[in-house]
Simulated scan of single mutants.
Amino acid sequence: MSWLNRVRNSIPFLPKRETAENLWHKCRQCNAMVFTKEWEDNDSVCPRCDHHGRIGPRARFDRLFDPGYSVLPSPQVREDPLKFRDSKRYQDRIKAARQATGESDALQNARGTVDGKRAVIGVQDFAFMGGSMGLAVGAAFVEGVRAAIRDHAPYIIFTAAGGARMQEGILSLMQMPKTTVAIAELREAGLPYIVVLTDPTTGGVTASYAMLGDVQIAEPGALIGFAGQRVIESTIREKLPEGFQRAEYLLAHGMIDMVVHRKDLRSTLARLIDYLVPRREAA
């Protein structure tokens, strides 16, 4: 045994300290490393650059509703109607998304109260196959609207999607008129439809229910558009302006009504509900 090995073996090394993989969160915008607890306590907003991270339905519901809300059951639809397969079977992709998110599909609804005011809230989960719009999303949207009508409450949708779900072909595009008709039903009932655009909201979702709100709200920095910037630039052969398709740009050009920080969303929605929901006359 060489002297180097003898010295090395005689040193009382301490056991390697285990560090949890989820102890830190890396901001997608400024690349700062933030303690996960600090990130979560700050509503998944970066304390360094104020970047609004993507969050799922359960986190949204917990932040917005008063205690005691209930999640609506997901409507049953035919899965894989086209028996679609690319590099993987569509059914396998759905199973993987369900295991990763714990949700049945990309849109979840819940009913409860926001600062004492009744509301039905739907949230799209971008983590579930990019929040893509298929039969299940369309059915959940309609069920959310009809639950709001039954409760005499507004329907509030948080959008986050890459567009229509390609594995369902034309059936996914048919959800665009279907959701538009549901919004008309809500308006016939005299109830408001409020949209909160989150990062990213694109494609067929933007071309349908995402831009039909009575009030259009967006989170800071959210990407909102139909086609991607590179597609637009290659089509019109021009350089797009700085900040194009971001929430602040849309606000400056009159496409949305307000940009609201996540910490102010609950109070803003409660105020809008108070303004917009007609009070029933006492019997």
Rank of each mutant, 00 (worst) to 15 (best):
S74M: 10
W3R: 13
K117L: 13
Q108T: 15
R63W: 15
I149R: 02
V277G: 09
Y69D: 02
R89V: 09
V181D: 01
G163W: 04
V181F: 09
L107M: 00
P241L: 09
E168C: 06
G116S: 03
V120Q: 07
K16S: 05
K178R: 06
I94T: 05
S44L: 08
I157V: 12
Q124P: 07
Y209F: 15
S267N: 11
A119F: 07
G203W: 05
P57K: 12
K37S: 11
C49W: 06
N31A: 09
R118F: 10
R63E: 15
P81C: 05
E38Y: 12
S267I: 13
I217C: 02
K37L: 11
G116V: 08
E38D: 13
V77T: 13
M176N: 03
I149W: 00
A110W: 04
G53F: 06
A153W: 13
T113I: 01
D86L: 15
I121L: 06
Q29V: 03
M174D: 04
V145N: 00
F244A: 01
A148Q: 05
C30I: 08
S87D: 07
T180Q: 13
F226Q: 14
C49S: 05
V231G: 05
Q91T: 15
E281L: 08
D257I: 01
Q245K: 08
W39S: 02
K37E: 14
H25T: 15
A127C: 05
E143P: 03
R89H: 12
V195M: 01
L186A: 06
G102T: 12
T202S: 11
N31Y: 10
A210V: 14
A227N: 14
D105N: 03
M255N: 09
A184L: 03
W24Q: 12
R63I: 15
D105K: 01
P75L: 03
F61S: 09
D151H: 08
F35S: 13
Q76S: 13
V205D: 04
A153M: 09
A119M: 04
R93A: 03
L107N: 05
R187Q: 15
T206V: 12
A210N: 11
H51N: 15
G228A: 10
H253I: 13
A227E: 12
F244H: 01
L107K: 00
Y209I: 15
A207Q: 14
D80R: 02
I11H: 08
R165N: 08
A160C: 10
A100H: 06
R60H: 15
K26W: 06
A210M: 10
R118Q: 09
T113K: 07
Y69R: 04
S267P: 03
W24N: 08
G134R: 00
G112H: 05
F141N: 00
A153T: 06
H253W: 11
F141Y: 02
R111F: 07
H152F: 02
E188K: 05
